[in-house]
Amino acid sequence: MTRASAKAATIHEIAKRAGVSIASVSRALNGKPGISEGLREHILAISREIDYRPSAAARQLISGKAAVVGISLGRKDIELRPYYILLYQHLTLALHRQGMVPVFFAHDQTARLPDSAGAAILLGEFPGDAREAWLGERQVPCVRVGESPSGFSVGLDERHGLYLATRHLVERGRRHIVFVGGELASPHKHLRLMGYRDALHEAGLEERLLSLPHEVVDASLTSYRYLNRWLVSLGKASTEPGHDLAFDNLPFDALACATDELALGCLAALEDHGIGVPQQVAVTGFDDLPTLADQLTTVRQDIEAVAERAVVLLGEALAGKPAQHVTLPVELMVRQTS
Rank of each mutant, 00 (worst) to 15 (best):
K76H: 14
R59V: 08
S63V: 11
R81F: 11
D115F: 14
P114W: 09
L80A: 15
L95P: 04
F104N: 01
H107W: 12
S63P: 10
L95N: 02
T110H: 12
H107D: 15
A106W: 08
T110K: 06
S55L: 03
A111I: 09
K65R: 14
A119F: 02
R75K: 14
A57G: 05
V68H: 08
S63T: 11
R53G: 04
F104P: 03
S63N: 14
I71H: 04
G74L: 01
E79Y: 01
K65M: 07
L95E: 03
L87V: 05
D115H: 13
Y52F: 15
V68N: 08
D77R: 10
L61R: 15
V101C: 09
K65V: 09
L61K: 12
L91M: 06
R53E: 12
H107T: 07
L87P: 01
E79Q: 06
G118T: 09
V103S: 07
L91D: 03
P82C: 08
T110N: 11
P114C: 10
V69E: 05
D51G: 00
Q98G: 02
Y83I: 03
G99F: 11
P102S: 05
A117N: 04
A57V: 07
D108V: 01
P102E: 09
A57I: 05
S55H: 03
I71P: 01
E79L: 13
I71L: 15
A56L: 01
I85R: 03
S116Y: 15
Y84L: 07
F104D: 01
Y83E: 02
A57W: 00
Q89E: 13
